[in-house]
Amino acid sequence: MTTVLPGQTGELDPRLLEHRRELTGYCYRMLGSSFDADDAVQETMVRAWRGLADFEGRSALRSWLYRIATNVCLDQLNGRKRRALPMDLSGTSWQPVEASLAAKKPADAWVEPVLDRQVVPEDADPAEQAVARESIRLAFVAALQHLPPRQRAVLLLRDVLRWKADEVATLLESTVASVNSALQRARATLAAVGGELDERPLDADHRELLDRYLDAFLRYDIEAFVALLHEDATQHMPPFEMWLRGREDIGTWMLGPGSACRNSRLIEVSANGSPAFAQYRPTDGGGHVPWALHVLEVDDGRITHISSFLDLDSGLFERLGLPVAPESEPAA
Rank of each mutant, 00 (worst) to 15 (best):
M1T: 09
M1W: 10
T2G: 04
G7Y: 05
G10V: 13
P14E: 09
L17E: 08
L17G: 10
R21A: 03
Y28D: 08
G32I: 02
A40H: 10
M45Q: 11
V46H: 12
F55M: 14
E56F: 13
G57Q: 11
G57I: 07
N71F: 02
L74C: 06
N78E: 13
A84H: 10
L85S: 03
S90W: 06
G91F: 12
W94D: 12
A99W: 14
K104E: 15
A107F: 14
D116P: 13
R117N: 06
V120M: 11
V120R: 06
D123C: 11
P126K: 10
Q129N: 07
E134H: 09
R137Q: 12
L144T: 09
Q145C: 07
H146Y: 12
P148I: 07
P149L: 05
D159T: 05
L161D: 07
R162E: 03
W163D: 06
T175F: 01
V179P: 01
Q184H: 15
D198E: 15
R200L: 14
L202G: 11
L202R: 13
D205T: 15
D205G: 13
R207T: 15
L210D: 01
L210G: 00
D211A: 15
L214K: 12
A216Y: 02
L218Q: 08
I222D: 01
F225V: 02
A233T: 03
M237R: 09
F240T: 06
E241I: 15
L244Y: 06
D249S: 15
R265P: 05
A271M: 09
A276I: 08
T283F: 06
D284T: 09
G285W: 11
V289N: 04
H294N: 10
H294T: 08
V295N: 02
D300V: 15
R302N: 05
I306H: 00
I306A: 00
F309I: 06
E318G: 12
P323M: 05
P323V: 04
P326A: 00
E327R: 13
S328P: 00
A332F: 15
